[in-house]
Amino acid sequence: MTSENASSVEITALGKYYNSFHALKNINLSIPAGKVTCLIGPSGSGKSTLLRCINFLEEYQEGAVEIDGQVIGLESVGGRKMSARRLREMRRSIGMVFQQFNLWPHMTAQQNVAEALVQVQGLSKAEAARKAAAALQKVGLGDKTESFPNRLSGGQQQRVAIARAVAMEPKLMLFDEPTSALDPELVGEVLTVIKDLASEGMTMVIVTHEMGFAAHVADQVAFLEAGELVSCAPPAEIFRNPSDARIKAFLETYHARNQF
C-alpha cells in the first residue's frame, strides 16, 4: 500500500474545553502516514478526547487538527465551523471503532457493514452486500453475516465494528479503547485483527490500555496526562527508558496491577 492510501495527521496547539474544564492543553502531535500511533495514559487524561477531536466528534476551541494538510471541522485555523457537507466529505476517509462497539442493534452484521456503503458511498445494495460479506470474512466472521449484534459476543461485535469501518476503505483509522469493554479472553481476537490491519499500511491511531500490544504494534507512543501531551516517542523509549517521572509512575502502577 502506498502513502496515497494513508493520511497523515498534524495536530497543532490543540485546546479543548468542556465549559470551564480544560480537557486538552496545547497538544502538538504529528501522526505520519502509514504508521501506528498509540495513545496511552491514565483514565481521564484526555486521550479519548484527543482521538475524538481527530474526526471532529468533539469540537475543539484552540489550534487545529489537519488531515493531509486540511483543517477538520473549521474553515481555517481559528475560523468558523465548516459546513456539515464538507465535514462529512472529510469523515468519509476516516474510520472509527468505539469502546462500546456502537453497532446498530436493528441490523444484522452484514447490514451494519453495508449501511454506510449504500447511504454514504452510494453503492447498490447488491454491491454493498458483497463488499460487506468480504469485510466480515476478513475479520473472521464470514459465518455470522446474518446475526444480529445481540447474538454476538463482545469480541465478535467489535470485529463487526472494525469491518464496518474498514469496508469504507478509510485512509485513517481511529480506535477508541477497542478492547476495554471486552472480557479478558476476548481481547486477543480483536487485537489480532487490528494487528493484521496495521501490517497493511493504513494510518492508525489507537487509544489503548494494552501496553504489551502498544509496545508490539506501535511505531510511536504518545503519553498523555491531565490533558497534556507528556511525551511522544518510539515504544522502546517510552516503555524501556521513560524520560519522564509521570510515565514511570504510570507504568509501575500498570505492571503492579497486572502481576495478579
Binding site: 466528534l57 462529512r88 474510520g95 472509527m96 468505539f98 454506510a116 447511504q119
Partner: peptide
C-alpha cells in the same frame, strides 16, 4: 454512541 457511529461514518443527520 449509535448516533455518533453514524456521524463517524459520514452519514448526514
Amino acid at each position: 454512541g449509535m448516533i455518533e457511529a453514524g456521524r463517524a461514518m459520514a452519514m448526514s443527520e
